[in-house]
């Protein structure tokens, strides 16, 4: 298994080949709508892999920046951004949680949301105001849990000796799951099943789930060679189900607020959150599954 101990070079090569092939397919099929997201991937993939090659600190820095920007998009969309103190506490929580993850302080990492929510309770007292404070507090708790803590699990995943493969698998598989859900839905979709995202179909969701499980088995030896077959099956299920739940959760946020996209930073994709939506839930569930059953994390 030693040949598979270094998944980063293999995945980097695969990503490079994949992006070239994807470009070739776009050129041959003349699918003009695909060029904007493709150009964005041309920037995103090198950034992600550069951070991974830099090591745990580089990766933690990228997760922190992405989490801060993602939460900023959420706060701007919900109007929470006007309440600077709430936002600053969530920013601080993002930094603190990623630091706890880098140092492998699992206990601290797990109780970090308690400290952050405790700090948030002080904001109305410091501001000496009641108007809008319940809403601000509630949205900030969402920020602490969903955008700070959940995403910081991506940093924690990377510190395990086999974690790099898991991180890359989780990222690639969730992104692929989005694409597969879209494609299978377009090709086979007939029955819509949720008001949260009316374009989702039963056929698309089940197709993406089946293909995610297949993708997990394809990555077995590269990403998680120590997992038994049922672990690989569970990894596929976590990505296939968790990715779609994460997607629907952010779709629910958007519909409640009344917006289409969280931003426009990534042309062809929308905002950072429109790209990260499926990752937010998969990252923590995957980490705790791997930790509970395979006891790998410090």
């Amino acid at each position: 298994m030693e040949t598979f101990a270094q998944p980063l070079p293999a995945y980097t090569a695969l990503a490079a080949v994949g992006i070239v092939l994807f470009g070739a397919v776009l050129r041959v099929t003349r699918l003009t709508a695909g060029w904007a997201p493709y150009r964005t991937w041309l920037v995103m993939l090198p950034v992600v892999f550069a951070a991974l090659w830099l090591g745990v600190w580089g990766w933690a820095a990228l997760v922190t920046v992405v989490s801060v920007y993602g939460f900023k998009e959420f706060a701007r969309a919900s109007g929470l951004y006007r309440e600077r103190l709430f936002v600053l506490v969530v920013y601080a929580a993002i930094v603190a949680m990623n630091l706890a993850a880098v140092f492998g302080r699992f206990g601290l990492f797990m109780v970090a949301p308690v400290w952050a929510v405790g700090l948030l309770t002080l904001v109305p007292i410091v501001r000496n105001r009641t108007e809008g404070m319940l809403q601000g507090f509630a949205l900030s708790v969402v920020g602490v849990v969903y955008f700070a803590w959940f995403l910081a699990h991506l940093t924690y995943l990377a510190i395990w000796q086999d974690g790099l493969g898991l991180v890359i698998y989780v990222i690639l598989a969730t992104q692929l799951n989005d694409v597969l859900a879209f494609l299978t839905g377009k090709l086979l979709g007939r029955h819509r099943w949720t008001v949260l995202s009316p374009n989702k179909t039963v056929e698309g969701s089940l197709g993406a789930l089946a293909l995610s499980i297949a993708f997990a088995f394809l990555n077995w030896q590269l990403a998680f060679p120590r997992f038994p077959w049922w672990g690989v099956l569970a990894a596929g299920l976590i990505v296939g189900v968790g990715g779609q739940i994460g997607d629907l959760t952010l779709a629910n946020f958007k519909r409640n607020i009344g917006i289409k996209d969280f931003g426009d930073l990534l042309p062809g994709h929308g905002g950072i959150l429109d790209r990260l939506n499926s990752l937010t839930l998969v990252a923590p569930v995957f980490l705790h599954f791997a930790r509970f059953f395979f006891d790998g994390f410090p």
Binding site: A77, S78, G79, Y81, R84, V87, I257, G258, I259, G263
Partner: peptide, 25 residues
């Protein structure tokens, strides 16, 4: 929910708007 008034504007437009909408970052 009251989204920020410049939510649907591209980043480069937001950078150049006047009066500036307060933005911590």
């Amino acid at each position: 929910y009251e989204p920020m008034p410049d939510l649907d504007r591209p980043l480069r437009e937001r950078l150049g708007q006047y009066p500036r909408v307060p933005d911590m970052t």
